[in-house]
Design a protein around this nucleic acid. Sequence first.
DNA 1: AAAACGGGGGC
DNA 2: GCCCCAGTTTT
Length: 364
Amino acid sequence: MKKPFHFAESLLNWYKNNARTLPFRNEVSPYAIWISEVILQQTRVNQGLEYYRRFMARFPNIKSLAESTEEEVLKIWQGLGYYSRARNLHEAAQQIMSLYHGQMPSSYQELKKIKGIGPYTAAAISSIAFQEVIPAIDGNAKRVFSRFLGINTPVNTSSGSVLIEKAAFSFIDPFQPGNFNQAVMELGAMICTPKRPSCTNCPLLSECIAYKENQIEYIPLKVKKHVVKERSIFYFVFYSKAEDTVQLIMHQRTRNDIWKGLYDFPSLEFNEAMNVQKVIESEILKQQFPYVKFAELQSINGPLKHILTHRILWLHFSVYELSVMPHIENKNHTIYTLHEVLGLPLPRPIEIFLKEFMGKTILV
DNA sequence: AAAACGGGGGC
DNA sequence: GCCCCAGTTTT
């Protein structure tokens, strides 16, 4: 007598025997769950693990996070990307201190009101930390459910999302929703992968429609491909050397743009095509940095190409040694010693530039 | 509904 | 070079 197939039972049995041991698994603290979920947004587990450890060591609870500065949080986040996550975590911690007496709210609905907690993260926290029966639907879940049911509606459309959500609600285990959600994601990460999934090891193989109909490589279907736009940024690295200390003029990015909150150098960006020579000769440069003798501005060989998901950045660096640091009028420009600069939250390419290029230029 | 937001790793 | 990752916010 063959036992009827049961999605949650098969999946959870597989999960029990095959789950990776991760530092936030079996974690009961809602705070720890929250931090791990935010770190793992659009981030592979392996990339996020060390950040999770450092973050929890530096900010062990909501209070310590709320009482830190945004810059301290960004510094821990440096290199992980999507910096709004760090800024939102900091703001959210203060929100929780003032509005929820320092306790994480437990329900999906309340959690979703918190900065940086969207539908996925609210469902993950409420199900894992508080056993609320609600599916946490991330990229893994969309892939697992769409393949299992042979859903060929694009998963990144609202109608596709509705289908996936209905499926997830119909399969979720009401007695262990947190484990169920984690099991779906684990399956998506380890077995039901985007490319070359390991179907022969899948506990759901016998009932998988996409597998049965040979549609694995076409599901999940997605619409659109973003066009990768290019931007050129011209950086001006002003520094001075006095005895043993090097000072630089740094710029904090405050606009709703890439790297908000992080520090780079004073810069110019144009809509039309420019080259370094034209920029150096431009009037706007002279207006912005009147203390520079432009003839002595040295451009560093070739722009640095920095590739992001939706952008290609061409970063042009020009360096200029000042005999004395000028008085700065721009509110976003500040003078720091090189030592201080290395303690600021820096975009990856700025960090690389400082370590690889300025190291030679300044220290020679 | 679409665009913006990082950085890294797999193939 | 392309894909996409335990997504959210802004436009």
